[in-house]
Design a protein around this nucleic acid. Structure first.
Length: 484
DNA sequence: TTTTGAGTTGTTCGA
DNA sequence: GTCGAACAACTCAAA
């Protein structure tokens, strides 16, 4: 008797290597049907942003091609996952469904319901960990609860073994007798109608292969100097792996293994200070998932409840928010970051902190507004990391930053972009200002501005808020939260 | 149980 | 110009 087919439901794991659900299906011995469902969730308040959709389109095309090279296909559908899966099971006489787990609150609820229904109807269902080194439910502190501070969390994680990547066996996949109907990836209409994606195209190469290439390159050339280089946004000093990670074209286990492999020569793990700090960032991603899983309401609400009464600024007509989004705040380092984001779907991490701090502290606009904008525009938009990042910036999260930490945009610019190279790249209208004035054009003498063809208030805005006053007001706002 | 020390990424002020 | 201290109060982890 032949073995019935198995469905592999691809989601945020658009890769063939280190894909436990896929490997499990192959090892079962029967035909394998890779399925991708473009989800229609009516009440999902975190609809994917356009930049992320662009990436997903190309990731799916790459996955489809990789499957075809192994004599298989990608069945593409659109609709409500539970129903699509049921239909697929009927059409193909499949006896099993496998997938890799997701951790967003809505996804957990939905997957649990699907698992229950399918199991009850006699289908074998199994889910796997493909996205994390350590799943949130595995990690507990000594009191048995979730960690809420990064350092002890990560210290604890580092004492645990990390599973090696799951190997995909060589050769072709066994195809089913008949394939169900499939849409073409183009029919999902993930690409923008208006061609604003040129900047994305010239910046990124989505797909598992390109992600692996970038990982190898970074480990070889960038990792050991990561500690010194990562804070300079004009340099390519960060890994830039986030978008591949986000779409699951790359897994943290693969990253871990690559770093381990690199440490064989050095004889220690991690092999360098740079490597150790790089793994810390992977740890922050893990921590973000840990927090999202245990505190699912924090995607929209502050973890520290007193922040619900934070005195946000009144912004009639949303003018301040709009200026921030467009990169027209008058603070070059902030504006450069927001323009890099708009053009490439990505922003350097140092600048993310400065730009986010500016929104929350200088403009005193709700961090949720910033989180929404990042969600819409980042190719690496990840609910867990985005939530953690913004709550951390606002000081409303678990890992409380000192209230007095207000990034000074001019100082940050001078410190981390000393030659103004980053600002010049993203704000061409300031391109001819000398480095001395580029982070504070309003301090430049008239003749310098004239020579650089800059007319403040016309070719480039004057600061929309003053630093000193904004800082004072922010500190006062934080003071007002104090109990008693 | 109680206590202690620490807590990603900073800025300002005064010596 | 450089340097160190001050900047809330609180929560969490661990001893």
């Amino acid at each position: 008797m032949s073995i019935s087919p198995a469905l592999v439901w691809f989601r945020s794991d658009l890769r063939l290597q280190d894909n436990p659900a896929l490997t499990h299906a192959l090892e079962r011995g029967g035909p394998v049907l890779p399925v991708y469902i473009d989800e229609e969730d009516e009440d999902d308040q975190w609809r994917e942003g356009a930049a992320s959709r662009w990436w997903r389109h190309h990731a799916l095309v790459a996955l489809e091609r990789a499957l075809q090279e192994r004599g298989s296909r990608l069945i593409v559908a659109r609709g409500v996952p539970g129903e699509i899966l049921k239909q697929c099971l009927r059409d193909t006489q499949a006896g099993a469904v496998y997938w890799n787990r997701r951790y967003e609150p809505q996804a957990i609820a939905r997957d649990t319901a699907i698992k229950k229904t399918l199991t009850e109807s006699g289908v074998e269902v199994a889910s796997f960990n493909a996205a994390l080194l350590h799943e949130p439910h595995e990690i507990r502190n000594k009191q048995g609860g979730p960690f809420q501070v990064f350092s002890p969390y990560w210290r604890h994680c580092l004492t645990r073994p990390v599973a090696p990547p799951v190997k995909l066996r060589a050769g072709e996949f066994l195809a089913p007798a008949n394939w169900p109907r499939s849409l073409r990836v183009e029919e999902l209409e993930l690409l923008p109608r208006i061609r604003w994606d040129k900047g994305l195209e010239t910046t990124w190469t989505p797909g598992e292969e390109a992600g692996q290439r970038r990982l190898r390159e970074f480990v070889k050339r960038g990792m050991d100097t990561y500690d010194e280089q990562r804070n300079f946004p004009a340099h390519d000093g960060t890994s830039r792996l986030s978008p591949w990670l986000r779409h699951g074209e790359l897994s943290p286990r693969q990253i871990w293994a690559a770093v381990k492999n690199a440490s064989r020569g050095a004889g220690v793990f991690p092999p360098s200070r740079g490597a150790s700090l790089f793994l810390n960032e992977i740890g922050w991603r893990e921590f973000a998932y840990h927090l999202l899983y245990h505190f699912p309401h924090t995607t929209t609400q502050p973890l520290r409840t007193e922040f619900a009464r934070f005195p946000w600024r009144d912004d009639p007509g949303g003018r301040l928010l709009q200026a921030w989004r467009r990169g027209l705040t008058g603070y070059p380092i902030v504006d450069a970051g927001l323009r890099q984001l708009w053009e490439t779907g990505w922003m350097h991490n140092r600048v993310r902190m400065v730009a986010a701090s500016f929104l929350v502290k200088h403009l005193r606009l709700p961090w949720q507004d910033g989180a929404r904008w990042f969600w819409d525009t980042l190719v690496d938009a990840d609910l867990a990391s985005n939530t953690l990042g913004w709550q951390w910036t606002a000081g409303s999260g678990a890992d409380a930053a000192p209230y007095f930490r207000v990034f000074a945009p001019v100082l940050q610019g001078r410190k981390f972009d000393p030659d103004g190279e980053y600002v010049r790249r993203w704000i061409p209208e300031l391109g001819r200002l000398p480095a001395k004035f580029i982070h504070a054009p309003w301090e430049a003498p008239q003749e310098e501005l004239k020579r650089a063809s800059v007319t403040l208030g016309e070719t480039y805005p004057l600061p929309i808020v003053g630093h000193a006053e904004a800082r004072e007001e922010a500190l006062a706002a934080y003071q007002s939260l104090k109990k008693g």
